[in-house]
Nucleic acid binder design. Structure first.
Lengths: 328, 328
DNA sequence: ACGATTTCTGAAAACGATTACAATTATGAT
DNA sequence: ATCATAATTGTAATCGTTTTCAGAAATCGT
């Protein structure tokens, strides 16, 4: 392997001078700069990043925790994060938690072993109390998800509002028996979605039937299973409010297979406005989230924190929007 | 930050002994082991991985190059890769090339700066000649994609065969005017898919109309655009063979919007058997690929190469399978 | 009991970069 | 011409590990 020492020797200079050239430090004469550059080119030198990281005590890598890569919503967030990361010369270490509590927590050793300079969380399985001991070891930022009591920057949308407008839409369409399929975790997002729904129901003089609350459903397959469960009930909801377009798509698909009409027999509303929402028939009514934008904002915040600048987590202009299509 | 020196001091021993305990080296008495473990626990010590990497001259990270994370096919491959990586204590650095030649090439500096121990390529934009200079800097493995003349391990399926059976299916359904939408790169996969189609056509006394060959279409949106182009033609194909389910889905969606019936007015066959293939209507006829399995095999091969064991890239039992649904 | 192994432990030298500091030379002001 | 200041370069320490080497202690075989 070619090291900085080789370059120095070849250029007839010291390592220090070579290092200055690499890092665009001042106080190097043009003449020597040229010598160094020639030597680097000739030898095909690339600095060893482990050595740089050890010496500089930073990695320029940010860990990004997502539940599963199969969910386009999180890919969009990553897209936004990556855009800003690239602009700032940072790399991403993308980590799948598979919605597993322990896995999620384990990724925090990345911070302790100095493999990453910071962590962005896009979903939450554990309670805030589990995370809080780790914030001493490097910046942690919540993107999309949030806690009420967390002490780290949170890039979040008004999920309460989003959920409320979705629920209102169902009520306006005349539904009185509305089911809910949500995460069921203790995160602010999860709670707020349920709260928004409840609020809309209350306003209409309705309440949430505990039999129609479903948790921990994420995939298309989960949606299909859920639909089978609903069909088996004697008292069924006429509309269902879901936490993701994938689950909603699964419900629609299975409904059709079971000979039920969407939205007449069952109205379905999704969340996220993924490509699949346009593709499936009937096209899915859903709640659009500016996912890429919150990813960008999260990474901008991370960059600010790393540079010890003051941060601004204000997200005005970014709203959840109801997209009415044919499934409601 | 707590270092190994702190632990050594706290335990009243040398750094060497602590290191031996960390790495399960022999020749440490039980007594001292306990002292070290206690000290590590008490101080909350985690080894600094930059230092370990510098010293050990390896990172235990493998770079995985994919075109775009939005394509579930590649996510499946990653899934397989990750499974084996986890078993072997390796981490993944996932890199999106966005199907950009330069970007793809740039990621090879990861190898030169020793940020990764090896690279797995799942798609190819450049010619093999562009890559070959880099193979000196660390193991490179091709997964899914391949070249005829490459000198690195290739985990590949018989795309020629897969393409052939797909084309045969269309011909058996009575189609004589068959269009092709493929990658159009110089990779073996791309060439073989075209070859397989041509072979089937020739056997039926047909040939591939150059007007009906389309390249560089990847997304649902690309599919929709493509469909508009086709509709604008005066002499249109009656069937189209695509390179991915996403493009195929876009074609189907747009067809319906344009008032065309699939498969009657236009038959469409996809590739990959993604979830979307089941969801869209008409359900998509497609060619299933054991994507997770080839990911696993690729990582197994990488592990073998890193350990200098002899490798076996045989993939028998893993085949491309035609899945007939309703779009043909 | 005595030499030959084997087990245990620490001192010190790596790994490849960056940087504080000192030494030297060049430039500028008077 | 002289002194103050700025620009240029190198020496050596440092980041936090692992490992070679050597020495000390324990164990073994006879």
């Amino acid at each position: 392997m070619i090291t900085i020492t080789d370059v120095a020797k070849h250029a007839g200079l010291s390592r220090a001078t070579v290092s200055r050239v690499i890092n665009n430090r001042p106080y190097v004469s043009e003449e020597k700069k040229k010598l160094v550059r020639n030597a680097m080119d000739k030898l095909g030198y690339y600095p060893n990043s482990s050595a740089q990281r050890l010496r500089n005590q930073k990695t320029n890598i940010i860990g990004v925790l997502v539940p599963r890569l199969t969910n386009p919503f999180f890919i969009n967030i990553i897209e936004g994060i990556e855009k800003i990361a690239a602009e700032s010369g940072l790399q991403l270490l993308i980590c799948q938690t598979k919605s597993d509590k322990q896995k999620e927590l384990n990724y925090f050793t990345l911070l302790r072993t100095k493999q990453v300079d910071g962590i962005i969380l896009t979903s939450l399985e554990n309670d805030w109390e589990q995370f809080s001991p780790y914030v001493d070891y490097g910046p942690v930022i919540l993107c999309n998800e949030y806690y009420e009591n967390a002490t780290v920057p949170m890039i979040r949308l008004n999920q309460y509002e989003g959920s409320y407008i979705g629920a209102r839409h169902l009520i306006d369409r005349g539904h009185r028996k509305i089911g809910y399929c949500g995460g069921g975790s203790t995160s602010g997002l999860s709670k707020d979605r349920k709260r928004g729904l409840k609020k809309a129901l209350e306003e209409a003089g309705l309440s949430l039937n505990p039999n129609w609350i479903f948790h921990k459903r994420y995939s298309i397959e989960d949606g299909r299973e859920l639909m089978k469960e609903i069909t088996a009930m004697e008292d069924r909801p006429t509309a269902i409010f879901t936490n993701s377009d994938e689950v909603a798509a699964g419900i629609i698909k299975e409904s059709k297979e079971l000979g039920l009409k969407v939205p007449d027999d069952l109205a379905v509303i999704g969340f996220d406005n993924q490509p699949i929402a346009e593709l499936i028939e009937p096209r899915l009514t859903t709640i659009d989230q500016p996912s890429e934008e919150i990813g960008e904002k999260a990474m901008e915040t991370m960059v600010a924190v790393l540079n010890q600048q003051k941060i601004d987590t204000n997200l005005k202009g970014l709203n959840l929007k109801l997209i009415v299509r044919d499934s409601t």
